[in-house]
Structures are given as C-alpha cells and as structure tokens.
Amino acid sequence: MMDEVLSIAFLMSAATLRVATPLILCAMGGLFSERSGIIDVGLEGKMLMAAFFAAATASATGSAWAGVGAGVIAAEALALLHGFACITHRGNQVVSGVALNILAAGLTVVLGNAWFKQGGLTPPLTANERLMPLAFPNAGDSILVYVALLSVPFTWWLVGRTRFGLRLRAVGELPLAVDAAGISVAGLRYRAVLLCGLLAGLAGAYIAIAQNAGFTRDMTAGQGFIALAALIFGKWRPFSAFGACLMFGLLDAIAIRLQGLKVPGIGEVPVQLFQALPYLLTMFLLAGFIGRAVAPKAIGVPYTKEH
C-alpha cells in the first residue's frame, strides 16, 4: 500500500514537472516583461509560434537544436513586434498581445498547411529531430526541463541581484525616475521584452519537439494564459510564480489521472473543474479574497517623454 502511494506520488511529481516545464519558462519570460511595465497577454501566441517553427525547422533540417533555435527566433520576432507597437509607438499593450495571439493562431496553421500539406500539422518528428529524454539525472526528462528549473534561480538572481534587474524593476514601477536618472526607459523595456521572447520561445519549442513529436494546431491550448495566471498568482516574483506553475501543473496532472475515475462518495470528479481552477484561484487572488497581488505600478502605461 505504502509503496503504491509512493510510486504514485513519484509518478505524479514527474508528470507535474513535465507539464509545468513550459509554464515555468513562459512565466519567467512574462515576469521580465511585466516587471518592466509591459503587459504580456501574448505569451500564448509567442509560445505557439515558437512551437510551430521549432517543429517545422526540426523536421526540415533533421536537427532538434536547429528547431529550438528557430522557435526562439520566431518568438523573438513576435516579441520585437510587441515592443515596436507598445514601446516605440506607445500602443495599447493588451490590444497588441491579443493581436499577436490571433496572428499566431492563424499563421501557424496557414504556413503549416502551405508547407507540409497536412491540414496545419507538421510531419511527425523522428527521434533525431526531437529533444530526447536524458538518461541522467532523472530518466525521462528532456534537457529543457532542467533549463526551466534553472531559469527560476537565474531569473531571481538577474532581477534581484544585478544592475540590470534593479533598473528593470525600477522601470516597471516608476519609469520617470529611471529617465530622471539618465537611463533609457525604452532600452530597458526592449531588453525585457526580448528576454521574454527567449524564454517563451524555449517553452514553445519544448511543447513541440520534446513533450510532443510535432506541431498540431493550437497545441499550446491556453498554457500561455495559465503561465500568465501563475505569474500573477505568484505576485510577479520568481519563486512564487514557480510554485504557482507547479501547483497548476499538479492540478493538470491530477485532472489527467482522475479522468473517468469515480471517487467514493463524490462520484466522478469533473476534470473541467481542475482545468478552471488556476483561473478561478488567480481571480480570487486578484480580487483580494486570498492575500493581495500588487502589480508593478507602471504596468500597461506607455511612457511618454516630453521634449
């Protein structure tokens, strides 16, 4: 009995980590963007675009790493577009994010269909074209799982312990103060947005060529928004957001396990409840029912410098 519990617990934790990997990468990416004052509801789109280009490139070149590179470049392209609209042209950040999500949802299928003629899918990837699980340290995990795990302390260090991080946090709180100190607000925000693109790109590549063996339409299935929810739930702090990602990943893993299972006394547990929980919890948090999430003060406000 005990053994069974332990092995289920082990399986669950391994499953949780695998499910949480793209969430973690994406949430850390979003953290850079949002701490600099740029709202990113376009995480989903960046991830989706990266997933497609990673799978397409891996399939075309036969190299998984070329796929990862292409995924990152695709996400960076969207990140730059977001920056161009929101930082350079002071456009509405939410509108821009929504636009990029829709653009990515359409473009991945249009291009996939045009290039591979499989109704928007990429050809199934062979073992060489995928990032295969490592044998060590924990059998079954892709290297990107470890990258995701490392991205958390790295983000914490970069944001909390470096000059760049200090300025990044400052620009998200009071850009005028940063400007008055003689530092470029736009420069900092572009760097933040690019870091976000890098991490969201890795997340997308993971989904397409490590977790799965190819691209399918809308394969990110809202994970970008779950990552955003985790970021908010974690109050825009790296380790808290990491915890939220794990919790949301666990909910997902439980949902998959409970599917069709009858729990004595309750009956069949609705899987959809678990799917909705991350959003509901985040909304409760935002409404101040459980603690308080205080967003960076300058978030969503374009910085206008008068001359």
Partner: peptide, 17 residues
C-alpha cells in the same frame, strides 16, 4: 522620484550602481 517598493539603498544607487 523614489520607488516605493525599493529600499533606501536601492533607490540611492539607481543609475549609479
């Protein structure tokens, strides 16, 4: 032009780190 969530020291060095 102070950042509320920063310490005095952090505010002091911003731009002159």
């Amino acid at each position: 032009m102070l950042i509320d969530s920063f310490t005095v020291l952090e505010n002091l060095v911003l731009g002159a780190e």
